[in-house]
Design a binder for these strands. Sequence first.
DNA 1: AAGTGGTCTAGACCACGTC
DNA 2: ACGTGGTCTAGACCACTTT
Lengths: 242, 242
Amino acid sequence: MAHESPTFSPLYRQIKSLIVQALEGGDWRPGQAIPSEQDLAMRFGVSQGTVRKAVDELAAENLLVRRQGKGTFVASHDDPRAGVRFLRMTALDGSAAQPQSIPLECWRAKAGQEASRNLAVEPGSPISIVRRLLKLQNKPAVVDEIYLPGEFFGALTLEMLQGWQGSLYSLFETRFGVRMIRAKEKIRAVAADRNSAELLSIAEHTPLLSVERVTYTYGDRPVEWRRGLYSTAEHYYQNELN
Amino acid sequence: MAHESPTFSPLYRQIKSLIVQALEGGDWRPGQAIPSEQDLAMRFGVSQGTVRKAVDELAAENLLVRRQGKGTFVASHDDPRAGVRFLRMTALDGSAAQPQSIPLECWRAKAGQEASRNLAVEPGSPISIVRRLLKLQNKPAVVDEIYLPGEFFGALTLEMLQGWQGSLYSLFETRFGVRMIRAKEKIRAVAADRNSAELLSIAEHTPLLSVERVTYTYGDRPVEWRRGLYSTAEHYYQNELN
DNA sequence: AAGTGGTCTAGACCACGTC
DNA sequence: ACGTGGTCTAGACCACTTT
């Protein structure tokens, strides 16, 4: 039999898509186990090996987490095993970050040109904005301004942020059902303005990292845009190149 | 039969080690094809599937490159397909980097404390140092100071650097047989000193990225330490978080 | 036509965690 | 003892490249 499909996609990728759809649709909740490979293989009418390959890729993309003997689980920002996955700051002595988030403000606005482009929403559509200070090792290290589409985060309030123990992404996942999957960052060097300098307890004009991040959920859909000013007095941004 | 090995390692990982040893020993040269999976399976006395899993991991780590229908090849910094793998700078408008390396100086010295720690060599042992300017889109963007262990790079000269077309890592691989596999970077924000400012055609005290990189070859052995000052006037450092 | 990697299957057994 | 993911095998067939 000749092969004729121009949009050929191997079986395991189709299975992968089905699993992602189930995740997206909320069939399986973050932190919980998905059905066993045998179970999935029967459901989809393929061999266990094909399911395995699909799950392998999803585990490599951090959408799923395998645990031998126990099962395969939906990745969660709530899981302490995950830690603060997207924060790349390390103390100069190499010790752990120990982040503490201090929400400063939270208000609603209409999307300007930049927010609209980065969040892929119409200009003028409702968004929520958060300003917060991040302390690392009990020292002010990052000032963030975070832009969120109102479609998902319209109900976000300062009180909610202040009352939450844990990471922002954990809150977004638990309270708003939005799961942050991957992100892109653009890093530049800038001089501290007066306001940021005060918050970070440094001198005005001190060089800072400007880190612009767009965060995506399933289907490469952008659901967060943030700009952070990182003080590198006590910490550095660590990156691995492969 | 009970399992009793405390240092249990699955077969495919042992195969993987054997392949890495062969790469390290120079049995197969960068850019060239390694034996077919069938061939390797017979040599090692395992099934093709086991070799496949080993090669899969090595391909994921960018040590090997698979090409359907042709074979599996040793990754090479010389290969235009690879590009400049470790340079994360992108133009503000998003276009490609088009790097041009301009070697400024090259001399030999004895390893100081910092170089000795980062290169894992004895303090006082011979090292080579390179200073160079990197232009992106024909604009000065990065000033690098590069520290290399004399053990491998004792013969490096400015003339060699100036005469080379292509990336530094391509030169290191081709002329010195040292293959850069992965790297770690530590990024901070600093103010431009006078000398760097001149080279980068910017004002003194302009904020710059300070990018410190340690680069490793096989077996996690560090073989390069460099510090770069990156101008983010026309470019930004791009990073992907997963 | 021949050789390579890529996919898919089916079955056996191992390692890990829980009951 | 049982169920889970992890490893290993053997064989079939597909897709891509070269001869």
